[in-house]
Each structure stands twice: as structure tokens, then as C-alpha cells.
Amino acid sequence: MKRLLTEARLVLIGIPVAIWTLLPIYHMFLFSISTKEEAFSGELWPAHPTLRNFGIVFREQNYFLNHFWRQFANSLLIAVAVGAITLVVAAGAAFSISRLRTRGGRLVLNCALFTYFIPAAFLAVPMYKAMGTYGLLNTQWALILAMVTIASPYAIWVLKQASDKLPWELDEAARIDGASPLQLFRLVYLPLIAPSLVAVGTYALLLAWNEYLYAFLLLSNDKDITLPVALGHFLSADDSPWELLMTTGLIYALPPAAIYYAFKRYMVTGLTAGAVKS
């Protein structure tokens, strides 16, 4: 009886939350299968559902969508690059701070985490200037490096927490077995924190995939920009094709959903690793 009551309560809380989060997505979905005329009709289901919008987007048959595939590829490339580079940086840093006990490592980590006290938006202008100094403005490297910078502190922190939980004796056994620090890193350390690597890599990848502000600032050429920036351009028209905007948005939301679903297991265990002492 008591259990039933708790469950009923959970359902009562759960339903509004689900509606709250799903409603906008449903709205987006409605737009994407409606014609322009029907899009604003306010019906819960369009009278003549259609997949035409998707065809227009895929075939780039709109002024705003001239470079859809190119921009989609940009997003993908940048996200994957950010994920990969963040992994290399974070795994190396976490290994050296946690396992090699490099002097000053903790200080570096704390300084890096300190950057999160400053909203990313405030750092955008300094970042813009820095990229200008290095002559990287309007290149995709600018965005990649900026996103790696933003993702790294958290990634290092998560990996360090996971690393701290590995038993010391493994390192010592490997040292006696004859492993150099690099072999220890490659043959023992990386395989053992693989779940956390997946979580951290995915986190950085999604962060870059969803980024708007930095992409907007650091890239300007139509052929270099990522899809979120391109979507932003829709709004510059007086008569925006909302149904196409929503369709593109929906398509854009699919890869993260797929990635999250695929790595769900690692995301939960990996990102909470070390959050509590077990």
C-alpha cells in the first residue's frame, strides 16, 4: 500500500515533468510535418501531415539551406575533433596529475576549474581576441580549440576522479614488470578508465555540437559555419520559413539523441564516477 502511494506520487510528479520537456519537442515535430499554411493552425495534429519539409532540407531547396550538408558536416567534424582532442588532453592531464603525481598538478586542475566561475559568455570576447592574435579567426580550428578549452577542465576533473579510484598497486606491479610511464598509460591506465573516456568524450562532443555563441563569433563564412549558426540566420528574414527551421532543428537533434542512447550506460556511471566515496 505504502509502495503504491510512493509510486502514485512519482507518477504525479513524472507526468508534468515529461509533458514539460516533451511539449516543445512535440511542437517542433508538428512543425516539421506540417505545411507552411497549417503550421500555425494550432491543431494538435495537422490535417495533411507531410514529409515534404524533409525533402526540401535534404535537397537544399531553400535560400537558407543552400549549404545544409556542408554545414552539417562542419558540425560533425568540429564535434568529433573537439571530442577527440579533449580526450587526449584530459586523459594525459588526469594521468599525470593522478598517477604520476606531477608537482603542481592539483594547482593546475583547481585553476582550470576556476574558469567555470566565469560564465562562458564573458570569456567569448577574450577568446575572440586570443584567436585573432594567433591568426585563427574564421578558421574551424578557432572553434575547435575554444571548445576544447571550455570542455577540458571538467573532463580532466572527471577523469582524475576516476583515476584516483584505480589501485596504486597496479601501477607498482606494472613498474616492477618493466613498464615505462608511457606503457603504463597505454597498456594499463587507458583500458581501465575506458568507461570514463567514453563518457567524457561524448560530453565534449555534445558540448561542441550544441554550441552556438562561440561558433557564431569565431566563424563567419557561410561554408565554414556550423548548423546552429546557420539556423540562426533563418531569423534574420521577415518571413522566416518556420517549418523548415523546425525540421532542420529536429534533424540536428537526432545525432545527440542517438549518441546519448548508445552510450547511456557510460554517461551515467562515467560522469558520476568518484562523485561519492563508495
Binding site: P167, E169, L170, E172, A173, R175, I176, G178, P191, L192
Partner: peptide, 20 residues
């Protein structure tokens, strides 16, 4: 001399086997 060059082998209390 480095551990690896001392030509010794050690058995730990926790065994320290590589889990993977």
C-alpha cells in the same frame, strides 16, 4: 636502479592483477 632493472618480482597483498 629502477624497479624494472633490479630483476625482482613482487606478489602484492591485493594481488594487483591487471583486471582487463
Amino acid at each position: 636502479v629502477d624497479s624494472k632493472d633490479r630483476d625482482i618480482a613482487m606478489v602484492f597483498q591485493s594481488y594487483a592483477l591487471y583486471p582487463h
